[in-house]
Amino acid sequence: MSGRIHHLILPALVGGSFHGYATTYHTVESAQKACFPDGTEFTPADVKLTKEQMKAIEQDSGVRVRLDTQKVWKASRGGQPAGWFIVDEVLGKHEYITWALALKADGSVQSIEVMDYRETYGYEIRNADWRAQFLGKKHGAKLKLDDDIRNVSGATLSCRHITDGVKRLLAFYELVLKH
């Protein structure tokens, strides 16, 4: 084989460290600023869902509602309604991803921003108990949040859970928020 294909033989699966990421893309304030024009004001308007509302959202969206509290801000500009800003969490491969959905005043999607992305990899890291034994450990820890690893090329993680989250939050808007 000539020089254009480099075969790299993987080492056997003994030991080795597992890597994780925690990337913060946005705070609440910076995400609000990214989603709405300058001069928009945000009023907190968190919603506590009743059991009936949770059930109705699940039926409408086909997506499970995990939490009964939704973090919401009402956006306004010059005293006029400008839309809604909702912060939500969905499960990634193993960890929760915090993201924001901005809705226009008519309830249509204005934009979506990922705020916090946490990820650990490895089939061994499936359950929380296994993971918990490494949390808080520094010296000799096998699971680490690695700042050096910024760019990874490899198998793709799907964003399907955010797509489901959008469906769930649009049902939340339709059934709860707009009333």
Partner: peptide, 15 residues
Amino acid sequence: ETVQLRDPQSPGRMA
């Protein structure tokens, strides 16, 4: 830019 290639048999490891 530095880019890591994930181990296809153990995606937690960078190969």
